[in-house]
Amino acid sequence: MNQKNLIIQAVEDAMAAFDEDIRRMGTLVLENLRLASEGLLQRNTDLCNRAIADDDEVNRLEIKIDRTGVELITRFGPVTLNFRRIIASMKVSTALERASDHAVNLARRGRKLNLRPPIPETAQIKELADLASAQLRDSIDAYCDGQLQNALRILSRDTALDQAYEAFTKHIVSRMETDSAHVKDYVDLLFATRFIERIGDQSVNIAEDTVYYLTAMDIRHGGELPGPPGAAASSGL
C-alpha cells in the first residue's frame, strides 16, 4: 500500500518518540555514571552531588515511558513486534532507572570517601567504571538500533566486567587484612565497585530485553540463545 497508513503510522510515530525517551534516559544515566565515577576519582564532591540531583529526571522519564506504553497498548492493542517493543521499552526504562540509582549510590560512596585522605586503590575503579559505562552505552544503542548481534555481545562482555570486579574485590579484601587502618575506605570502595558491577548487570537486562523484542526469545537465566543471523530475525514475526 502506497498511501500513508494511519494506524501503523500512529504506532510508528509513538514508537519513535518512545525510543527517543529511552535514548534520552540512557544519555542521562551514562552522564550520571560519569559524574559519579569522576567525582570519586577526582575527589570532586560537586560532581557527586550533580549525579545525585540528576537522578530526578531519570525517574520522571521512567514514569513517562511506562505511562506511554500502557496508553499505546490500550489504544492500539498492538501484536507481534510492536507489542514486544512496547513491553521491552518499559523494561528497559526500569533497567535504566535502576542503573541510575546505582550511579547515585556510587556518588554517595564517593562523597564519603572524599571526606577522608585518599588511598591509591581508588584509582583502580576507573577501569571498572569504563567497562560498565561502555557496556551500558552499547546495550542502549543495540536496543534503540534493533541490533541483535550487538545485544548478544553484551552478555559475554559482562563476564569480563564480573571477572574484573572479582579480582578487584579479592585485592581489596587482602588489603583489608594487612591495612586495618583504612578498613572504612576499603568497605566504601567495595560498595562503590559493587554498584558499578550492578550497572553492568542492568546493561545485560537491556540486552536480554533487546533479544526478546527482536526475536520473541526469552534468553534470561540460561534460556536458549537465538540461532545465526537471519534465522533469528525472522523467528519473531
Binding site: 500500500m1 498511501q3 497508513n5 494511519l6 494506524i7
Partner: peptide, 12 residues
C-alpha cells in the same frame, strides 16, 4: 480494512 484506516485518518 484499508478503507477504514483512511476514513479514520480523515476523521482525525
Amino acid at each position: 480494512a484499508s478503507g477504514i484506516e483512511r476514513i479514520e485518518e480523515l476523521i482525525t
